[in-house]
């Protein structure tokens, strides 16, 4: 399933790597792509293995607020 999270304004291009790497490490995540300029993350994940809330928490743990 695909889920898009709207984050607070992203300003450092290195955040992209941080968020993508951090999410891809989670089991059940097939792909995670940051749309830097739109400050969004698109995540494809297996609903059986992880959930929207887990992902949201992971992003917030990385230091980015999810709107």
């Amino acid at each position: 399933m695909e889920q898009t999270f709207q984050l607070e304004q992203l300003s450092c291009p290195s955040c992209r790597v941080k968020i993508e790497k951090g999410l891809r490490k989670i089991e059940g995540v097939d792909s995670a792509d940051v749309l830097f300029n739109a400050s969004k993350v698109k995540v494809n994940f297996d609903e059986g293995k992880t959930s929207k809330d887990t992902l949201k928490n992971a992003i917030e743990k990385l230091g980015f607020e999810v709107k």
Partner: peptide, 15 residues
């Protein structure tokens, strides 16, 4: 420092 630590944990080289 916090951001530096976070990136280091992700093994990325941060400014």
């Amino acid at each position: 420092v916090y951001h530096a630590y976070q990136s280091a944990r992700m093994r990325t080289f941060s400014i």
